[in-house]
């Protein structure tokens, strides 16, 4: 689901394959997952459990918990996670159901 990215990437690291919400993405290995997803054109990382509002990364330093994603059944902060080959990332939705 390569969409037009609002971001420019300066570095040119080797890429690995990950899956985000069912879509294959090619991200720089060892990169910050939140930064890599945004650079790949992902805006909405999750929907809030309270109102279902869309959210994406906000602080990039592990403090705000807005960039939460699910990896292997565990909720993680994308900005505190490193891109590795084969990551399967799920976007949590309001009702808790995963797509």
């Amino acid at each position: 689901m390569k969409t037009a990215s609002p971001f420019l990437e300066l570095d040119n690291e080797p890429r690995v394959n990950v899956v985000f919400d069912g879509n294959a993405l090619s991200l720089p290995e060892g990169a910050n997952l939140a930064a890599a997803l945004m650079a790949a054109g992902v805006n909405v990382f999750r929907h809030t459990p309270v109102s279902g509002a869309p959210r994406g990364p906000f602080c990039m330093m592990g403090a705000c918990f807005d960039c939460l994603v699910e990896i292997d059944g565990t909720t993680k902060q994308a900005c505190m996670t490193v891109v590795t080959d084969g990551l399967e990332i799920t976007r949590a939705h309001r009702d808790g159901a995963l797509t």
Binding site: P6, L10, A31, N43, V44, P54, R55, G56, F58, M60
Partner: peptide
């Protein structure tokens, strides 16, 4: 301010420092 795409300026700096990622627009 809670919309995706709205971030702290510090987050913008972290994106540049750590990841070499720059907002075009």
């Amino acid at each position: 301010w809670t919309l995706p795409g709205v971030m702290t300026a510090g987050a913008g700096q972290i994106l540049l420092k750590q990841s070499g990622v720059l907002a075009r627009n």
